[in-house]
Amino acid sequence: MQAQELLEKYKAGNCTDAEKAIVETWYLKFSKPATELSHDQLEEATDRIWERLPIHDHTEEIPTPVKKSYLWPRIAAAAAVLLVTGIALFIFKSNSPLTDPDLSATANYGAKAPILPGGNKAILTLADGQQITLDEAGNGKLAEQSGITITKTKDGQLVYTVSAAANALKTAMNTIATPKGGQYQINLPDGTKVWLNAASSLRYPTAFSGEEREVSLSGEAYFEVARSIPKKSFKVSTSKQTVEVLGTHFNINAYADEPSTKTTLLEGSVKVKSNAGEDRSMVLKPGQQAALTDRQLLVNYGKEEEAIAWKNGVFKFEDEDLQSVMRSVARWYDLDVVYEGTLPSRQFSGEIDRNSNLSQVLDILSFFKVHFSVNGKQITVRP
């Protein structure tokens, strides 16, 4: 398919979702006046772009074509600008997951049925070993222990309510764990709000006593820490670091299969300290991100939106390699990834709605000269 043909399809409102994402990104990111270019020059430019950004034909059409002719006059100019910059950015958002059972096997990359996105799923383990599957439990009171009432709200949150006598009782340790394809929000006894991403777990006391409030995290979570009176520091321990705060908003990505543990600060102040023997620590300011590896502790800037995009229902990638992108996809769609052949060393940038089904996500990623096939819970990636 030539670029001009794609633009004509867009003008007529006949593009697939993936094709719309390409055209609208050209316009939104790179649009500017191009009066110095003739019509022939614009056509030549868009064709050259298409040669550099291969696309395969899609058979799935938009059920209700949406015409956006008001964008058309400047789309060709935007495409010409893209040629100059050499950047490919794709933005794909969907209002609802695609659940049509009649999708072809090709559209589903070999899957027998559409693979849908994750949702609110988690298991709560109480101090006595009792386990409660939260996505199957009814709303309302789930348990009571050590003067603490545990309640599930109708919007899928887990809330701890402390009674007046709780401080005099012995605290117990609870654990909430999300599977691959799951996420959950919990309100801790001190009022701190925690959002858990997929394949993550949080261990915490049913009441915070003593001079510190401390929890343990595996995986990824976003924290909105409540200030306590009198002031008690709040600590989050992971396998490689400890983060200490008083009252603040931050995200920690501490997955074991990621090359670094990343702590991103949005509000307030946090201190990040390595658990290794060396004295490696830093105090972050809003907008900063600490990236801890086995060898060093670095600071990055401007990563806030990318860090918490998952909490807001979006995959957001900024210059990420294919393996990094696929780790995020595999956690959310509960898949294992296998690689075959020599994969292109490209970097991905853009946004994809986490409410999309898997085939929609793979449609976008396939523009980067990679092929996907799905067999049960395994996805194979080939050049």
Rank of each mutant, 00 (worst) to 15 (best):
A207N: 13
V325I: 04
V84T: 13
N187K: 11
G118R: 06
A291Y: 05
K273D: 04
N14H: 12
A105Q: 11
P205H: 00
S260W: 05
K231P: 08
D353R: 09
K170A: 08
K67H: 10
K369F: 00
E36A: 15
L343P: 00
D17I: 09
V329L: 06
Y339K: 00
E351I: 10
G119T: 04
Y255G: 01
E318K: 09
Y222C: 05
K193W: 09
A18V: 09
Y184K: 06
E211Q: 14
A226S: 15
L265H: 01
F315S: 00
T151H: 08
P189Q: 01
E220Q: 11
F234P: 08
K9V: 05
F92S: 15
G110Q: 04
E24G: 07
E267Y: 07
E278R: 12
A168E: 15
I22K: 08
Q360G: 11
T342C: 01
V361K: 08
L7W: 08
T248Y: 10
T16E: 08
A199V: 09
T99G: 00
S201I: 10
F234V: 07
I55R: 14
E8P: 09
Q183S: 11
G181M: 08
S328C: 12
D319A: 07
W332M: 06
Q378Y: 03
V236A: 04
K20D: 14
P383R: 04
S237R: 15
E224G: 05
V381H: 03
A177Y: 11
W310K: 02
F90E: 07
R227Q: 12
G156S: 13
A309D: 09
N375M: 12
S260G: 03
Q185G: 11
G110L: 07
A34S: 15
P344C: 03
K271S: 05
P205F: 00
A198H: 14
T161K: 13
Y109M: 00
L297S: 02
H56C: 13
S209D: 03
V325H: 00
L335A: 07
H39Q: 10
Q288M: 08
I379G: 02
F367Y: 12
I22R: 10
G313I: 03
F315N: 02
K112L: 14
V215E: 02
T153D: 05
G140A: 09
I115P: 03
S94K: 09
P33C: 07
Q4P: 03
V270D: 05
N275G: 13
N95M: 06
K303I: 01
L89V: 15
I308P: 06
S269T: 11
G350P: 06
I62R: 06
R280C: 01
R327P: 09
L358K: 02
I123W: 09
T342F: 04
K154V: 14
G277T: 10
L169Q: 14
I62V: 07
N251E: 06
I91V: 15
A165K: 15
F30K: 12
Y27W: 15
T99D: 01
E244F: 06
Q2R: 10
W72H: 14
L71W: 00
A172D: 07
E212Q: 14
Q323Y: 04
L365N: 01
L71V: 02
V225S: 10
